[in-house]
Design a binder for these strands. Structure first.
Lengths: 203, 203
DNA sequence: AATGGGTGTTAACATTGTTTACATTATTGC
DNA sequence: GCAATAATGTAAACAATGTTAACACCCATT
């Protein structure tokens, strides 16, 4: 099945909902979260505003859906970056590099798409089913690799995860909100990475 | 001068702008950032919507103004918490306690007013004159105390500041966005505090 | 082939941010 | 003191928004 985007006639779109989320995502990425609107999205898809209400209960729910998709997108970027360094295979340097890669990918996303990072962690009144975060699971996998390669003691693992998560997220958030500028970024980055490594790896 | 809030007649409010920011702040604190609106604020102050345009160019600018006020409010909370432990006076334990106090106050604010913390670090298209952050200056003062009391080497000071700032902010942000729940919070808190102290204080 | 559920349209409504023209108060210069 | 002027409020209108209700069309199942 070639999953035709459109059926014969174009009265029915064929795959609204996905198209809506896609367009909404791009709208936010380019013009900020306040640029998201039912009518603006509808206009870009050449569809009537009311059509969107067949797939979303409200603008607020659409925002929540976009937020969820962005969180997944982030996690996928992290996984891709991790796989790029090659398999862990109990190698200390590999495991370490993979761990660093997912952290870097996290803040890289925030730097590249600050507006999307913003909505990913915005309190949404109507959020989709709160599945366990893929990003968090990825972090846990990485720590497991570090344990198995002998770089991290298991009893330190929880502390490592929470500190890494917090500080990396803080760095990403400060960058995305332009609280720290591009010029200040490198020194922040180095401090955070060193701090995390000191806490994670036994010395 | 007793700075009368209202003059004789009530055609002129006397101190709009401040009243507007105040009401806007409370509106966001209670109902979220999307609850902020020109007309809703005007209604609560018993003033015509157009009156607000004598003091703010747009809703966006008002949001920026509120954001700035909240950032100041946070810094004031930090300073109050710090002064509560008493003067540093070259005492190691005092300096250390004061340092911990400002960090705790930071995330305490995010826990108490998550919606306000949210807008404080939201990218605003129109932000007020970008004064140097009071919170950041407070952090620098605290580190200076640590240096003078012999707990921190000066060459480590920049790294300490940036790591502390990032990880504390990350913790606060994750809490405010409900990414981590109240139940998970304590273990996160402990990890971050330990991590910061390990990095800041020579061992 | 008929029917019914899914999906889109049309038209309307209330509410919003914003502007323009006007009214009232406060302040300043003589 | 008092007129001129700036500052600050109101009133009415406009375009754009989220949302809903009634209707139209398509597709799949019987």
């Amino acid at each position: 099945m070639l999953t035709p985007i459109r059926k014969g006639s174009d009265y029915h779109h064929g795959d609204l909902r996905d198209a809506v989320i896609q367009v909404a995502r791009d709208l936010i990425a380019n013009e900020g979260v306040s640029a998201l609107g039912i009518r603006r999205v509808a206009l870009r898809i050449n569809v009537t505003p009311a059509a969107l209400y067949r797939h979303f209960q409200s603008l607020e729910q659409l925002r929540g859906e976009v937020s969820g998709r962005v969180r997944n997108e982030m996690a996928e970027m992290m996984i891709i970056a991790r796989e790029k360094v090659g398999p862990a295979s109990l190698s200390k340097t590999r495991s370490r590099a993979r761990f660093a890669a997912i952290g870097d990918a996290y803040v890289a996303y925030a730097r590249k798409f600050p507006r999307l990072f913003e909505i990913a962690f915005l309190t949404c009144d109507a959020l989709p089913e709160t599945e366990e975060s893929l990003a968090w699971r990825t972090l846990e996998e990485s720590l497991e690799e570090l344990i198995k390669s002998g770089l991290l003691e298991r009893r330190k693992s929880m502390k490592a995860a929470t500190l890494a998560w917090s500080s990396i997220h803080g760095l990403a958030s400060l960058v995305a909100s332009q609280t720290i500028s591009n010029k200040e970024y490198p020194v922040f980055r180095k401090s955070v990475l060193d701090g995390v490594q000191d806490a994670v790896f036994a010395r």
